[in-house]
Simulated assay, not measured.
Amino acid sequence: MSRLDSMLRRLTAQRDGLNWAAEQIAKLDGDVLDMGLGNGRTYDHLREILASRRIWVIDRVLQCHPSCVPPEKDFLQGEARPMLELLAAENRRIALAHYDFGFGVKEKDVAEAAALSPEIARVMAPGGIIVSGQPLSGFQELDGPAGIPPGRYMFYRAVD
């Protein structure tokens, strides 16, 4: 498969997974969390499909497209662990989280996701959904929407 085809499959899986997750949390209270702003495509999609929810964003640096800059009060700039600890200290409850942190080195990315899983769990609303590009631990694995190849994206439910 070409890199272009692989990228298209990944982006389609991401969009379809986020749309599915938004439906799953329709009756659940809580905010949204985008972990890894990047250029802002996912954030832009989340604010379109979940316009009535507050969307928190965590990233090390703000380098997104100018049309995708989150409000200053919702952008938590810095390393993930202290930013997640800040949300937990403020008793924020996240109904839908998107995990997209990464260094581009699979082993390092998987290790970081595992290490951050307990901090993510602390901010999740019971029954909240996590859409992730990396495997997480301590959550109930879900099948997610039909048509997404196994391992392309992962879906989890926060347990009580």
Rank of each mutant, 00 (worst) to 15 (best):
H98R: 11
L87Q: 00
C68N: 13
V110D: 05
P71Q: 13
S117W: 00
M154I: 08
A146C: 13
A13G: 15
P149T: 12
S67G: 09
E112R: 05
D109G: 00
L18E: 07
N39Y: 08
D100P: 02
C64M: 04
H65R: 15
L116E: 08
Q14W: 06
A95V: 03
I55F: 08
L87H: 00
V123H: 02
R9N: 04
E119R: 03
G40T: 03
P145S: 15
A13T: 11
R47P: 03
R54Q: 10
A26V: 10
Q77W: 13
L96P: 00
H65I: 09
M35W: 01
Q24Y: 04
F103Y: 15
A125H: 05
L18S: 10
V32S: 02
K106A: 08
G127Y: 12
K27Y: 07
F75L: 12
L142R: 12
A95P: 02
Q77R: 15
R9K: 09
L86T: 06
R93D: 07
D100V: 05
G104V: 10
I129N: 06
A80Q: 03
R3W: 10
H98V: 06
R92D: 02
G40S: 05
G78F: 01
V105T: 14
G78V: 01
T42A: 09
Y99A: 10
R15P: 02
D74H: 08
V123D: 02
F139P: 00
M1N: 04
H65M: 10
V159F: 04
E48P: 00
S52Q: 15
L116C: 12
S117A: 14
R92M: 07
M1R: 03
G36Q: 01
R15S: 06
R60M: 02
L18G: 13
V57M: 14
A13R: 04
S52M: 11
Q140R: 14
A115S: 12
A89H: 08
I25P: 12
R47Q: 15
G36W: 00
W56L: 12
P126F: 03
V57H: 12
E85H: 07
S6Y: 11
Q24P: 08
A111R: 13
G127P: 11
K73R: 06
A89E: 11
S117D: 07
L62A: 04
V131K: 06
L76H: 00
L50F: 09
D34T: 04
G133E: 14
L62G: 10
S6F: 14
E72H: 01
L4G: 05
L116T: 03
N19W: 09
Y153P: 05
V131F: 10
L37G: 01
F155H: 01
L76P: 00
D74K: 03
R93F: 10
A13S: 14
G38F: 08
Q134C: 13
E90V: 06
D74I: 03
V57K: 13
A114G: 04
S2L: 05
D100S: 08
E72C: 01
A95M: 04
H65A: 13
A125E: 14
E90R: 14
L11T: 13
H98C: 05
L8R: 14
S137F: 02
A114R: 12
R93E: 14
G17R: 06
L33G: 02
E90W: 08
K73P: 00
L8Y: 12
G30Q: 02
L8A: 07
A97I: 00
H98D: 10
S52K: 14
Q134L: 07
D31F: 07
F139K: 08
L8H: 13
G151D: 11
Q24T: 05
D160E: 07
